[in-house]
Nucleic acid binder design. Structure first.
Lengths: 198, 198
DNA sequence: TCCCCTTTATGACTCAAATCATAAAAACAA
DNA sequence: TTGTTTTTATGATTTGAGTCATAAAGGGGA
């Protein structure tokens, strides 16, 4: 389910962009002029260190919106948005988006819930990084991802590479690879064809 | 300036609690039933590790509200709130607070800005922790604190203990103490009577 | 099918922050 | 003023994740 339905978005000046994998929608430091929502595809919000390391601030999929904080609170984007796959992105100009919020209390409240959920995620990651060892961090991250996925009685297949897990939890790939391997040996998760199941 | 003015709060069922230093307003895991705003005093939101380490998710002062995410998005508090000084806390019951938001678009938007600013802070801390060494982390944290304080041509006195800085940036006190001392020797900040100025 | 690029994998080594211990200084309360 | 707690300070030691190097496996495109 998307935050803003397409017909509503169109009434408020919404338009659709077609992007290819690895396209950049906005860069760190840009000012925010649009509300963005994924119609099809996936996007990562990332920050880069001066020596090129990447930290994934968030991953977004069909129906998700992203990049609202700079829009709502008027600061520069703290990260860049990069498509992970070919994508169609719905965007609404800033002024019209504020009109939309004013006219639609339910959407406004839904947006709040999304921001709050994102804060919850960041609280979790921050606690994990500052308290615990790699295994604990990975378990918590995987459990979070599982909890966000549609409920199922099947094992949850983690849809991320070890590099992505590392970039989300502040560790190096090698550490993630080694830790996950040890966790499999201890029966804490399963690996099939290098894919992680929990 | 507070988010919700007192007369507005009172019209929506607001009441004031008097708390003493180190009182706990809510615990991690509690469900959220009130909107809270500081009338006087200061509060920290913290999470604890299983072995008692503390991570400070946020510090709040006069006029600030806190603990809204669990209220808006209906999840359990991810941390506990503890008063740092004797405090007077204004609270508004959940249902009435939603009414207040519905009736006051400007307040609703202001709340969004606060949530967004908080996300920005967490993005910053996360990038710092995962990319950089203690000195860089401390500089960024101190600069952030300075940028939030009222502008002045005087040096900014950091109103936090080294332990608090450590608990906000995922390091140990000893590391913060040593790093700050080295930074002073390198002329990157000043220390007077053990107080930090930047 | 072959080639290239990404991802996973593993061993050896380094090093910086955590940990542990201890104490001085400062802040606070009685 | 004294006694107690908190905060700052510093040295010695440990350790575990980062780094570096190298390679195998897998996936996608031409």
């Amino acid at each position: 389910m998307s935050v803003v339905k397409k017909d509503v978005a169109l009434r408020y000046g919404g338009s659709v962009l077609s992007l290819r994998k690895d396209d950049i929608l906005f860069h760190e430091g840009d000012s925010a002029n649009f509300f963005y929502q994924i119609e099809k595809g996936s996007v990562k919000m990332v920050t880069y260190s001066v020596d090129g390391k990447e930290f994934i601030q968030g991953l977004f999929y069909q129906g998700d919106c992203f990049g609202e904080p700079p829009l709502l609170a008027a600061f520069a984007y703290p990260g860049s948005s990069v498509t992970l796959t070919d994508s169609k992105i719905l965007r609404i100009p800033k002024d019209r988006f504020f009109d939309l919020l004013k006219d639609n209390f339910d959407i406004h409240l839904q947006l709040d819930r999304i921001l709050c959920e994102r804060l919850r995620y960041k609280n979790m990651i921050l606690s994990e990084i500052s308290f615990y060892d790699p295994e604990h961090r990975i378990i918590s991250l995987l459990n979070y991802l599982k909890s966000k996925a549609p409920a199922s009685d099947q094992l949850f297949q983690v849809p991320l590479t070890r590099q992505q897990l590392a970039d989300m939890s502040g560790m190096r790939v090698e550490t993630v690879i080694r830790t996950i391997k040890r966790m499999e040996e201890a029966g804490k998760l399963q690996i099939q064809d290098h894919k992680i199941f929990i």
